[in-house]
Design a protein around this nucleic acid. Structure first.
Ligand SMILES: [Zn+2]
Ligand SMILES: [Zn+2]
Ligand SMILES: [Zn+2]
Ligand SMILES: [Zn+2]
Lengths: 139, 139
DNA sequence: TGCGCAATGAGAACCGTTGTCAAACGCGCG
DNA sequence: CGCGCGTTTGACAACGGTTCTCATTGCGCA
């Protein structure tokens, strides 16, 4: 998901670099607090506010994807593709795979237009239990 | 969206009735606080916690739909259909239309299974500017 | 090296939502 | 009709994630 945003010229800082590294290190969607804790744990001192600010900026620029957990918490992830795509997330372990589907994109656009809507956007997330988690946890 | 839930036998109360009425009165997705304010304004005294509790219960039972705004706030709406469906919401005025699309449902299920996922679920929301809002507000 | 301004950090403030717990109430039942 | 019990309510405190404030730091540039 997420439309690519305009790449702003932000001043490079130690903190931002650390954040980028941290994000590059994991494949799951993580909360700002989680990321902040992780950085702190590894000895990198970065303010929580800074984490939030950068994450938002990066998200706006399309450098990272953001999705809201059902509890409303924002979780971030540095995606492989910066083009529009969606995710299939494992509820058990967080494993995430990026997927695209022109058919869906077109359907959303069409159904909206059919109802007279313009400037159409959409959010779509899929979740389930990955092969590994599905075995021993058929919740 | 939302899977239909088990219809629990909840004790009928004045508050719940008022809530149901209020929901029946509007077609847009509204926040718990908004609904609570509306009730208070119309002279119906209902505790905020009660509004939250009932809204959640009703959502669990599939009586109302809930979606998260991009800011993370939960908004509720009494939908015409209790079957699985999605929404096209106007960013300008909140006008909401319910839509269904087997193609999308199947796509989501298929793409997830292709990646080894089971217990697949999904959330999909579409937004844009309705015919009316699209004219004078091409934001 | 000195300036100007963006970026940062510590903590307070916000705000939607949930928890607490005593009081009020719906519902059989005698 | 009054009683007892378990559910629901309501006022308010507590929470947790996110944003704001503002003094301080430190890039980028001349
Ligand atoms: Zn898994
Ligand atoms: Zn899409
Ligand atoms: Zn509109
Ligand atoms: Zn669906």
């Amino acid at each position: 998901m997420s439309e690519a945003g305009p790449r702003a010229e932000r001043r490079p800082t130690r903190q931002r670099a650390a954040l980028t590294d941290e994000l590059a290190g994991t494949a799951e969607f993580r909360s700002a607090q989680d990321i902040h804790a992780s950085l702190s744990a590894s000895g990198t001192r970065v303010g929580l506010a800074t984490v939030y600010r950068n994450l938002q900026a990066m998200a706006a620029d399309g450098e990272v994807d953001v999705i809201r957990t059902t509890e409303g918490e924002a979780v971030y992830r540095a995606c492989a593709s910066e083009q529009h795509h969606h995710h299939v997330v494992c509820r058990g372990c967080g494993l995430t795979v990026e997927v695209t589907g022109d058919a869906v994109e077109r359907w959303a656009e069409a159904v909206a237009r059919d109802h007279g809507f313009s400037q159409v956007r959409h959010t779509l997330e899929i979740d389930g239990l990955c092969a590994g988690c599905g075995v021993r946890d058929p919740r």
